[in-house]
């Protein structure tokens, strides 16, 4: 279960960022913002790396004391970042991958919505509910 989910446009500004409300949200802003460095590094590395390293899933970006940050980039250079609690060791890589898949599917639907202009903030309720489904429920 994620504590923070963010969608970042290819110009590196946030289209959507949502975190567990109990925490200081700004902290997640910072975390996601700094993780972009790593994401960019990985993305540029893909071009130079071997041909088989072409997954959309970027894996663990970097661990901090309390959190683990995972990244995913689509072919349209839109990035998804999920932050999970470090203490939550039960989460396996597969689960993270599936969370990203769901996000990607939902994002594709948003993109195909004619009322959505690419580049705007995402306000789709369907997207919201998909994200809520994968976030830690606030008690």
């Amino acid at each position: 279960m994620a504590v923070c989910v963010a969608v970042i446009a290819k110009e590196n500004y946030p289209l959507y960022i949502r975190s567990v409300p109990t925490q200081n949200e700004l902290k997640f802003h910072y975390t996601v913002h700094t993780s972009l460095d790593v994401v960019e590094e990985k993305v540029s590395a893909v071009g130079k790396a071997l041909a088989d390293q072409r997954e959309l899933y970027l894996g663990l970006l970097y661990p901090t004391e309390d959190y683990k940050v995972y990244g995913y980039v689509t072919n349209s250079k839109v990035k998804f970042v999920i932050v999970v609690d470090s203490s939550n060791t039960s989460l396996r890589d597969n689960e993270i991958r599936s969370m990203f898949r769901k996000l990607h599917n939902s994002f594709t639907d948003v993109m195909c919505n004619p009322f959505y202009n690419p580049g705007d903030a995402i306000q789709s309720r369907a997207f919201d509910s998909v994200v809520s489904g994968m976030m830690v429920q606030a008690c």
Binding site: E25, L26, H33
Partner: peptide
């Protein structure tokens, strides 16, 4: 680092570049 320049002319056109919450802070 936060794409914040202190010249308001950079902000007059186009979409906002950068993370608004962070920049405000």
């Amino acid at each position: 680092g936060y794409c914040l320049s202190l010249d308001p002319k950079d902000f007059s056109k186009g979409t906002h570049h950068g993370w608004a919450a962070v920049q405000m802070r």
